[in-house]
Design a protein around this nucleic acid. Structure first.
Lengths: 129, 129, 129, 129
DNA sequence: GTGGTCTAGACCACA
DNA sequence: GTGGTCTAGACCACA
């Protein structure tokens, strides 16, 4: 399900945070559904439990999951997760627009770039082994 | 001209790379115009020359400047710089579109988000928490 | 009557202890009134009896209830419970005052902060970020 | 300067966070003044650098310090720190008032408890070796 | 079993 | 030198 990419410059725990938060949306998870335990995910990823723990702490801080000592970790309210995701995308888009502006590309031109993108955006990444 | 932001978590040399490459566009630099020497910029920024050196190496690798040993560093062909910048924005936009797709936000919705952004992008957005 | 809050980071048994001790005051319980059995409360809360057992042990240690083997658990002397509660509040207030002092806020200023609090304290305050 | 209390129920990194954030106020630190390096504080406290690292990450997240890779960690804007501290005390006072209310102690009575506290609050803690 | 903290040590990029 | 990440393993309270 999740794969760590050694060529990715981001740290392992950051990759876990991003992948899991995306999976939560696509997986159509229900409120309160259990998330793999720290140890279980750690062994699946061949990574130290410590590292997964760190990712889970961040996911909880961000509002994606709720961890209960002795019981496990669970998907937080899915509605608010959806809002979080959208807000994050909006914020990144805003940053990108600013950066484009500094490079002399205005909002209009950026919108055109967006339209011209290949239909499904499958040209980046695409790691699948 | 350039200011290092201590709260920015990117490394100092990365900040220099980004700021300088933007300045080149906005500054309307001409082909072959001289760039401040490593030592000069280092002292202006109160930073070790080592760090500026690293930034210049990166800028050269990216095609923004040309360094000539014993003479200094110079702005590369401004036309190609402009193309570089635009390509970089396009690539980041593409990545963002993919990420949005994974969060269930399609191209159409993303375009609307873009339209809804405050007019000039001066909200310094993107601070996460 | 009692609800366990998954987002509350205290352990479940601690939450039960706090909620029950509060209920005893507000509920106007009489001396010696029976408290729900361990199994009964456990099933109401969908929690293992083990956990309720731990909470009851703590409540007995604190002087709120008396457990009689084979008969059940009972509310201890309500007068002394009231005193217990007040003493606990006083102690926490004292700790807070000390902490405030260390942050440069004196007794006087603290009293003003107290006066300025919204009238009924219904703001569910205290969430950190 | 800082002492870890083994009898304190809180974890080591939490104690470091609290002690350091208090010291920042009392020490009258200036904006941007350097904070001990991770390794230095770790060796002073006979604790793993990892644990101090964690505390510093939290202090940065809370806005008390700014850490710059390769350079060190520095006191953040002292004015905003002061505000942070006061807000934290206010929030804790609010929680305490709520709790008191649930125990049948109203705002008025709480204010009296506050007045009756021994003048300098030196009755708790007081570890000094 | 679960999450959470900690140790002792390594390695990395960066200044 | 600095901060930051990670490993491999331990131990804890809790369910």
């Amino acid at each position: 399900m999740i794969l760590i990419d050694g060529r990715d410059h981001r740290s392992i725990y950051e990759q876990i945070v991003e992948k899991l938060s995306e999976l939560m949306i696509l997986g159509g998870l229900e409120n309160g559904a259990p998330v793999p335990s720290v140890r279980q995910l750690a062994s699946e990823l061949s990574v130290t439990p410590n590292t997964v723990q760190r990712a889970y702490a961040e996911l909880e801080r961000l509002g994606y999951i709720v961890s209960i000592r002795g019981k496990g970790s669970f998907v937080a309210d899915t509605e608010s997760i959806r809002r979080l995701q959208k807000e994050k995308i909006r914020s990144e888009l805003s940053e990108l627009a600013e950066k484009a502006a500094r490079a002399g590309i205005d909002r209009q031109e950026l919108a055109e770039l967006l339209k011209e993108l290949p239909p499904d955006g499958r040209q980046t990444g695409g790691k699948d082994d």
